[in-house]
Nucleic acid binder design. Structure first.
Lengths: 352, 352
DNA sequence: ATTTTTTGGTTAAACGTTTAAGCAAACTAA
DNA sequence: TTAGTTTGCTTAAACGTTTAACCAAAAAAT
């Protein structure tokens, strides 16, 4: 009974969080000394440091992040904006960003745009409001107007884009070589004996998708394949739209014998339709996706795809941010990192 | 040339963020008046409010969240911990939490434990360090020791668990009726004429998985089916382990004619193996997963599963937190919300 | 005409840190 | 011995808000 009571009293005491002032009082030194001791300042004696650390532990001291952030003018928070988290690519990028930044004392705030421009603007406002020290983002499909990103730049907050970027914005960027990836894919399909290669691509206004389209067109030229406008289709690249656009291709008098789709999700939709219609993949039509999402290895037939190196992208994005903060020069050369993509060949693109 | 220069000067000026002090100076009033005006305090005249708002807009004022959080003793940040974000269930829960909390002026910090106990502890420390006003979490598979969650409770920070919870912790919880779900599944399989129903379940120490196992056992009894220990297997429920445990089941002399798997991911692994071995689903073996992940509808054959109502879980978790903050009573009755799950019948469990 | 109430503010302290500047005491060098 | 340096702190201000307490002037009530 008595024990319980004393426990309760202790709990009540711990409710009021202990501050450096409490530590200072115990040791009869100034709060400044405590602060310095905790930061291992050279002007504090070893004895005092030891004592401070001991008392801090005893009182279960947890530094107030808000106070130090306010004083130092930085929140040690980095905002991350992604179209969605439930794709392996984005969640893997996030995980790697987190890993690198946590080590340097930064935390991340993750927000999703759900491919909506409006939500993305909200997210940016939210992050600015939260006083983040930087923003790492991949833009929504809808996003064309860059006003909100300009706002971030204008505030002098480091902005790093990955995957879905924009040239006009003139900020740091980490991505893969989309143009070259298309070449690799087309080359692979040509080697498998394909002659009529279609491309279900993303919106042209998004740079990465535009590059994939350009790569596709140029690669066709290179291999002296005819460029048929019917075979080049713009899509939102969702599962549903992939299915729909594949349907469109199947209606052609002269069907393609291979389809390169700029997203694994859309490729999955296309594959489902083909399976339902008993059209044989890869015998009748070969399929290549993009992104190397785990399910590409799991479906039947498994889907050939492009590995986007999400781990490396995440790491480099984080490092780019850290670089920004360490160098305090106002002008800084932009960091544009373009990684080579890697083709992962699976069943869906085997020879006829 | 001159225009550009003046723009640059403006930019330099905006670098130093405007504060309520700046607004106060312009209007020759006190910062207190500005603060009150911005919060629509009744003791400020309409004229002043209007003027303040105008100047705030002109100077592009953005409130310093850190300062107000420090002063008010709350950060308006809610921490969310999930095992991973790249599952549709979790990302959907997160999205709904975010939606509800954003409306009330809260932002969320998402962290992933990757099913690791150590990472989860780190996440908790991180969130406490960031001075979150509350934590909404779903525990990692590994987590047995609740010391860190007790720490959260001891600090008086609202803690709400969902999906993966723990009875011992005695905190608010939102989840589905796992025990009942197992009944629904077994009943469904029995109706399809299945006689030997196996269960690949999760770790027994996790409450939800334990409930599913108990439900499975009791439902078998109810339908007078024999309970065969060989047919009840504990698994980590990853894709790989699902595959492996299915292999184990296939080695039995007396194979099951239906398998209920406590996770869609493990069910996917099992299905892959069955497909490879040309074992017909559902003719030879029926399959039921859990979670209603989108891919269950996409694979061949599509997988029957349980819809966990992720949207509702997210919403209720957020509302439970808000409820916590609004009522300032110290004692509060615990909120245990158990939603009814819904069986989504697909190809994998059609009659023989 | 005097008191009371309302209106529309102001003043100053507080939230918990960090940090520039200062300073006494102890030590070192000449 | 004395000037200079080093050590180990202290003082006080600052970061940008919010808020309790106070107050003068105007309006309303008596």
């Amino acid at each position: 009974m008595l024990k319980r009571l004393s426990k309760d009293i202790k709990k009540l005491n711990t409710k009021k969080k202990t501050t450096i002032k409490d530590i200072a009082n115990v040791l009869n030194i100034s709060t400044a000394a405590v602060s310095k001791a905790l930061h291992n300042d050279s002007r504090i004696s070893k004895k005092t440091k030891k004592a401070v650390r001991q008392v801090a532990k005893n009182l279960n001291y947890q530094p107030n992040h808000l106070a130090s952030a306010l004083r130092k003018g930085k929140s040690n928070l980095v905002g991350v904006i992604v179209p969605r988290t439930n794709s392996n690519f984005f969640s893997s990028v996030i995980q790697n960003i987190e890993e690198v930044l946590n080590k340097e004392g930064y935390n991340i705030i993750i927000t999703q745009s759900n491919e909506s421009y409006k939500k993305e603007c909200n997210n940016i406002d939210t992050l600015l409001f939260t006083q983040v020290d930087g923003i790492i983002a991949s833009m929504a499909n809808e996003t064309i107007d860059l006003e909100f990103y300009e706002k971030v730049k204008a505030k002098g907050i480091p902005l790093i884009l990955f995957d879905r970027g924009e040239n006009d914005l003139n900020v740091d960027y980490i991505g893969i070589n989309d143009y070259e990836s298309s070449h690799v894919i087309v080359e692979h399909l040509v080697k498998q004996g394909r002659k009529r290669i279609a491309h279900i691509g993303g919106y042209k206004h998004t740079r990465i998708f535009n590059n994939r389209i350009r790569g596709y067109v140029d690669a066709l030229k290179k291999h002296h394949l005819p460029l048929d406008n019917e075979l080049l289709i713009e899509s939102s690249l969702t599962i549903e739209d992939g299915r729909q656009k594949m349907e469109q291709l199947l209606k052609l008098k002269n069907r393609p014998d291979a389809v390169y789709i700029a997203s694994d999700y859309a490729a999955l939709g296309a594959l489902q339709l083909l399976n339902e219609l008993q059209i044989k993949v890869p015998e009748d039509i070969a399929l290549v996706g993009f992104g190397n999402e785990p399910f590409t290895a799991m479906v039947t037939p498994s889907i050939t795809s492009i590995n986007q190196h999400s781990e490396e992208i995440g790491k480099q994005a984080a490092l780019t941010f850290l670089n920004y903060k360490n160098k305090k020069t106002i002008k800084q050369t932009l960091n544009k990192i373009i990684l080579d993509a890697e083709l992962v060949v699976r069943e869906s693109s085997a020879p006829k």
